[in-house]
């Protein structure tokens, strides 16, 4: 066999699987989003009706709002926590820091369903640890105003340690001379952080912000197990809504439309973030 063909043969299995399980479903879901699907085989072409229905569907907007709330909460709460943990645990004088790093990282090794069960117990009104510590009887998961903040906190617990690892890697790559030079110029710890650490971490921050945002918009397992989207629909997320239509109501056309709406939203937000951070800009 001619060597120049060899790479194609090695790559063929990947592309065959990618084509069958990713590309084909992706394009078929575009077709599907223009159909009304009722039952196992019954498909009727409806053109853009699913999009019209989506725009007029109040539950879709509720799900979008909840998802955006979670994403914003993750950005504003989780990433500062992750960065603060990374700064603390990058301190060479801290004893047992590897143990701390492992401890903070470990929640991401646990399945989302299990985390949901843990938080279900933690948030219980009468017996939950959170209320015991606060000395209150707050209905974290039954109050429509509190359920999303409760989910955001669970998300922080789950993902902050994971993002901490990216920040730690970023911090370790900052050259010590930059801090020394800043100190010579009279910069204190805060000024060093603002003018050395943050600019040097910019690519890592960009990566973490973009991937966290994408992950947040795909939120499913935590609310699915913890609240089933309730109370009412106060914690319904877009992927949960998609799942309901796709797998509970067998309304695959509408589910495909929700899926594409989600993809467009994630795409637009990601592009804005990429531009804001100047990710692909040289220097």
């Amino acid at each position: 066999m001619k060597p120049r063909y060899a790479p194609y043969f090695f790559l063929a299995p990947f592309f065959a699987l990618f084509g069958v399980f990713m590309v084909y479903p992706l394009f078929d879901s575009i077709r599907l989003s223009t159909y009304s699907v009722r039952g196992m085989q019954n498909q009727t072409f409806v053109g853009l009706e699913n999009i019209e229905r989506l725009i007029a569907d109040p539950l879709f907007w509720t799900a979008l709002w909840n998802t955006a709330y979670f994403a914003a909460g993750s950005l504003l709460l989780q990433l500062p926590v992750a960065l603060a943990l990374a700064l603390l645990l990058s301190n060479a004088r801290l004893k047992g820091r590897n143990l701390f790093r492992l401890s903070f990282f470990s929640p991401v090794l646990i399945s989302g369903v299990f985390i949901a069960v843990i938080f279900y117990l933690l948030y219980d009104r009468r017996y939950g640890l959170v209320n015991r510590v606060l000395g209150s009887e707050i209905q974290w998961l039954q109050d429509p105003d509190l359920v999303m903040p409760a989910l955001v906190l669970a998300g922080v617990w789950r993902w902050a340690g994971f993002n901490m690892v990216y920040f730690l890697a970023g911090l370790q790559s900052i050259r010590q001379e930059l801090y020394e030079a800043a100190a010579v110029d009279g910069a204190g710890p805060w000024q060093s952080f603002v003018h050395v650490t943050i600019p040097a971490l910019k690519p890592v921050i960009a990566f973490v912000v973009i991937t966290s945002m994408i992950g947040s918009f795909q939120l499913f397992d935590l609310p699915y197990v913890l609240t089933e989207g309730g109370p009412g629909n106060a914690s319904m997320t877009m992927v949960m809504y998609l799942y309901k239509h796709g797998f509970e109501f067998i309304n695959l056309g509408y589910a495909a439309t929700i899926g594409w709406a989600l993809a467009v939203i994630i795409g637009v937000i990601s592009i804005i973030q990429v531009r804001l951070f100047g990710v692909f800009r040289e220097n």
Partner: peptide, 20 residues
């Protein structure tokens, strides 16, 4: 360039046979 002989061909054929 490393000479791979018939390995890629065999590998590809095995995959095509195994898949169905």
């Amino acid at each position: 360039m490393i000479h791979l002989g018939k390995a890629p061909l065999i590998f590809g054929l095995l995959f095509l046979l195994a898949f169905p």
